[in-house]
């Protein structure tokens, strides 16, 4: 079939949808629909098939220059190869954790790594304070130092069950079990409807009938 040789070039970090589908909760079609979204996000500023930090910020805040500690953390965790850009495979694997069918355990771990700002394997009190300050700044809320200190201490002492001055992953897991709403934003119900949100893949799919 000669007509299939004129395929459009794929993004540099492109991986086969069948491979990604096997490693994530997504079906092959869902991966292909995500590719439609990926193409959109990765070409919004620089058309190179990679999501740059500014493109990520643009998608989240409609503003490419919007600096935000939490968006930065998400970007860094999505960027598995740590080369400053999100490739298609990284995008799909990371979003897989946000799928309603992904395991709770993965979601808890992802949230833990998000809060472990300096990647020491522990969430320290300083890090929690830094995040509270960042949030207050983002929301333009002004609180006295005393109040901030109280908020941080109260939470930290409750989560740090062993009382060793840092929250390890096990303590974090127990804390999440106690307050399940903590991982509410680790699940994106949208991902279940992704094939209907980006239906163009039905025309461009390269899945052979024998593959399914």
């Amino acid at each position: 079939m000669g007509c299939y040789h004129s395929k459009k070039p794929k993004s540099p970090g492109y991986e086969e949808p069948t491979v990604l589908a096997a490693e994530t909760p997504f079906t092959v079609s869902e991966v292909e629909a995500l590719y439609e979204l990926f193409k959109k996000l990765s070409s919004s500023i620089i058309n190179d098939g990679l999501i740059h930090r500014e493109e990520f910020q643009l998608a989240l805040f409609r503003n490419r220059n919007m600096k935000n500690l939490f968006a930065d953390r998400i970007f860094d965790l999505f960027d598995l190869k740590r080369n400053g850009v999100i490739e298609f495979g990284e995008f799909v694997r990371s979003l897989g954790i946000f799928h309603p069918n992904a395991s709770i355990k993965d979601k808890i771990t992802f949230a833990f790594r998000l809060y472990d700002l300096r990647q020491t394997g522990f969430i320290e009190q300083e890090e929690l304070k830094e995040m509270v300050l960042a949030l207050l700044h983002e929301s333009e809320l002004i609180l006295s130092d005393d109040v901030i200190e109280t908020i941080v201490e109260k939470t930290f002492n409750e989560a740090d069950m062993k009382g060793d001055g840092k929250i390890d992953e096990e303590e974090w897991r127990e804390f999440v079990m106690k307050y399940p709403s903590l991982i509410k934003n680790m699940t994106l119900p949208y991902l279940k409807d992704i094939t209907m949100a980006f239906p163009s893949f039905v025309a461009t799919t390269e899945v052979e009938d024998s593959d399914m």
Partner: peptide, 23 residues
């Protein structure tokens, strides 16, 4: 009910809200 610091962060921060990627 007391809202702990992590609940405060996870619900209020727009940087954690990936729904805007899809809409």
């Amino acid at each position: 009910p007391f809202y702990n610091a992590f609940e405060f962060i996870s619900s209020m921060s727009s940087g954690f809200d990936l729904t805007s990627l899809f809409e």
